[in-house]
């Protein structure tokens, strides 16, 4: 079995390569320069240079797929990855199973798992599909000691003009590596409330995170601290959800946590269904109490 992988995000590239190790040969196509990518057993790494035109990248991958003797294509579910996969699917007229978080290879078919109904269902399906987008968190990051050769290829230009590329602010935090995550939601009520959460974050040597509204709508925390389906997928040893109601969007990003603690005023909040330990009450009163017992 030979896999063609595309990821424009280093973490996802490492996870999928760790996942595929021992299951077949694979080549990684990426726009990321990271030298560390060479340690995961890829036959080679193809560094794509030039402007990140999604049509250009999908055409290039499509050609490589035809000529390189590949069986399956795994594309990271990122903003660019989803576009590239959809164009690839359209160009090649092949079906795509999107957003998978697990895959097993049978003879001639694959069994995949993905979320449906906004995370309320896990759809397990068997198909002959050759093309998949995969969610971050597919596997742990397990580097080996090999050294894959790197070659470069230029991305062909398409009809869409890329006028400018501006880097977003550098990532402040790597939530995927945190042992303990303290996450705040809408229930925090105000941005100033974060100061009162910080002593807990410090005391447990954890990282601060937030739900989608807190990061994207109110900007109380930066975007790279957003946990959820559209943000980071995390699996810490302990996840503390403060004032987070537990919408399915959020749960999808923290489901893999070892222990979940929830604090919420509303005792019917769905987060308590997903918690090992829950405290019903005012988080501003409860957080200092927890700190005092640490």
């Amino acid at each position: 079995m030979k896999f063609l992988i595309f990821s424009d995000i280093e973490d996802s590239a490492k996870q999928v390569m760790s996942f595929l190790k021992g299951k077949g040969d694979f080549v990684l196509y990426t726009t990321e320069k990271g030298e560390s990518l060479t340690k995961y057993g890829a036959q080679k790494i193809v560094l794509l240079t030039g402007k990140p035109d999604v049509k250009g990248i999908s055409s290039l991958l499509s050609d490589e797929f035809s000529s390189g003797g590949y069986d399956l294509v795994m594309i990271a579910s990122t903003v660019l990855g989803r576009d590239i996969a959809s164009l690839f699917s359209g160009q090649k007229s092949i079906e795509v199973i999107p957003e998978i978080f697990d895959i097993k290879f049978n003879s001639g078919t694959v069994t995949t798992k993905r979320y449906g109904l906004g995370g309320k269902a896990v759809i397990e399906e068997e198909s002959k599909s050759k093309l998949f987008t995969f969610l971050s968190g597919l596997s742990d990051d397990v580097p080996g000691d090999g050294s894959s050769p790197i070659e470069t290829k230029n991305i062909p230009e398409g009809v869409v003009k890329i006028l400018a590329i501006e880097q977003k602010k550098a990532k402040e935090v790597n939530l995927e590596k945190a042992n303990i995550i303290v996450a705040v939601g809408r229930g925090l009520g105000k941005i100033e409330g974060i100061q009162q959460i910080e002593p807990l974050v410090k005391a447990v040597r954890g990282e601060l995170a937030g739900s989608r509204p807190v990061c994207l709508d109110y900007h109380w925390l930066s975007e790279d601290r957003q946990v959820g389906y559209s943000g980071r997928t995390v699996k810490p040893k302990a996840y503390v959800a403060l004032g987070i109601s537990g919408q399915i969007q959020h749960i999808a990003g923290m489901r893999g946590s070892k222990v979940v603690v929830a604090v919420n005023k509303d005792k019917n909040a769905p987060i308590f269904q997903e918690a090992d330990y829950g405290i019903v009450g005012d988080l501003y009163q409860i957080v200092p109490k927890i700190v005092s017992y640490l």
């Binding site: 308590f272 090992d276 330990y277 829950g278 405290i279 019903v280 009450g281 109490k289």
Partner: peptide, 16 residues
């Protein structure tokens, strides 16, 4: 999940 929900805030905080 265990779903041990405390309405006694003090007890809950100790456990957490």
């Amino acid at each position: 999940r265990k779903r041990l929900i405390f309405e006694d805030v003090d007890k809950g905080a100790q456990e957490v």
